Amino acid sequence: MNNCQECGKPLMGRIDKKFCCDMCRNSFNNRLNSDSHNLMRNINNQLRKNRRILEELCPDDKSKTTKHILLAKGFDFNLITNIRPTLKGSIYHFVYDYGYLELDNDFYLIVKDKRLEK
């Protein structure tokens, strides 16, 4: 006879049963995944914040800003969703539908990807 992987109570029923009840199964899995969930939650929150910052600074299709302004608003340059190289060799870093291109003297060009709109 097996015991519940969460509370240790003896299990009744199917031979491959791992938990005595849904509450034990949920508690076990929540505890097992809590670290990765916190990490993913924090990353997703920062990605949403990055997108909001770019959206705020780019009310039209294109705009320019400085690195100082982006950092002051809490932008994290380490978190992006994709990279798009141009034919000329420049690299746009995207956060969902907003991208930025590093220019000279700590300036950045911000663009909105119209292809993703419906």
Rank of each mutant, 00 (worst) to 15 (best):
residue 37 H to K: 12
residue 110 I to V: 08
residue 94 F to N: 10
residue 77 F to H: 03
residue 70 L to Q: 05
residue 115 R to E: 14
residue 111 V to E: 13
residue 10 P to Y: 05
residue 60 D to Y: 07
residue 23 M to N: 15
residue 60 D to N: 14
residue 79 L to S: 02
residue 1 M to C: 06
residue 91 I to Q: 14
residue 9 K to R: 10
residue 39 L to F: 15
residue 76 D to Q: 06
residue 103 L to H: 01
residue 35 D to T: 10
residue 77 F to Q: 07
residue 32 L to G: 00
residue 91 I to D: 13
residue 61 D to W: 11
residue 38 N to C: 11
residue 101 L to Y: 03
residue 72 A to I: 04
residue 78 N to I: 08
residue 100 Y to I: 08
residue 48 R to Q: 12
residue 12 M to R: 15
residue 28 F to W: 09
residue 50 N to C: 03
residue 54 L to K: 03
residue 74 G to S: 03
residue 19 F to K: 01
residue 7 C to W: 05
residue 85 P to Y: 11
residue 46 Q to R: 05
residue 41 R to V: 06
residue 20 C to G: 02
residue 112 K to G: 04
residue 60 D to H: 09
residue 113 D to N: 10
residue 35 D to G: 06
residue 31 R to I: 05
residue 76 D to T: 01
residue 83 I to C: 10
residue 108 Y to K: 03
residue 96 Y to K: 08
residue 38 N to R: 10
residue 34 S to G: 01
residue 98 Y to K: 07
residue 83 I to M: 15
residue 50 N to P: 00
residue 53 I to G: 01
residue 78 N to V: 05
residue 111 V to F: 10
residue 5 Q to E: 13
residue 93 H to C: 11
residue 76 D to I: 02
residue 110 I to R: 03
residue 90 S to C: 07
residue 53 I to W: 06
residue 80 I to G: 02
residue 94 F to H: 07
residue 58 C to S: 03
residue 8 G to S: 04
residue 101 L to N: 01
residue 108 Y to P: 00
residue 64 K to L: 12
residue 102 E to W: 02
residue 61 D to L: 11
residue 29 N to D: 08
residue 92 Y to L: 07
residue 85 P to G: 08
residue 97 D to R: 08
residue 108 Y to V: 03
residue 115 R to D: 14
residue 6 E to Q: 09
residue 21 C to M: 04
residue 94 F to A: 09
residue 113 D to K: 04
residue 80 I to W: 14
residue 18 K to W: 07
residue 106 D to R: 05
residue 4 C to T: 02
residue 117 E to D: 14
residue 75 F to T: 01
residue 64 K to F: 15
residue 118 K to V: 13
residue 87 L to Y: 13
residue 12 M to P: 04
residue 65 T to V: 02
residue 97 D to P: 00
residue 12 M to D: 15
residue 83 I to D: 09
residue 52 R to C: 12
residue 82 N to R: 15
residue 38 N to A: 12
residue 40 M to K: 14
residue 58 C to V: 06
residue 43 I to L: 11
residue 67 K to D: 08
residue 34 S to V: 04
residue 92 Y to S: 04
residue 71 L to N: 06
residue 25 R to Q: 12
residue 92 Y to V: 03
residue 78 N to R: 15
residue 78 N to G: 13
residue 110 I to A: 06
residue 20 C to S: 05
residue 116 L to T: 07
residue 30 N to C: 01
residue 110 I to D: 08
residue 2 N to E: 13
residue 61 D to Q: 15
residue 34 S to D: 08
residue 43 I to S: 04
residue 101 L to H: 00
residue 39 L to G: 00
residue 73 K to Y: 06
residue 33 N to M: 05
residue 104 D to K: 10
residue 23 M to P: 00
residue 6 E to C: 06
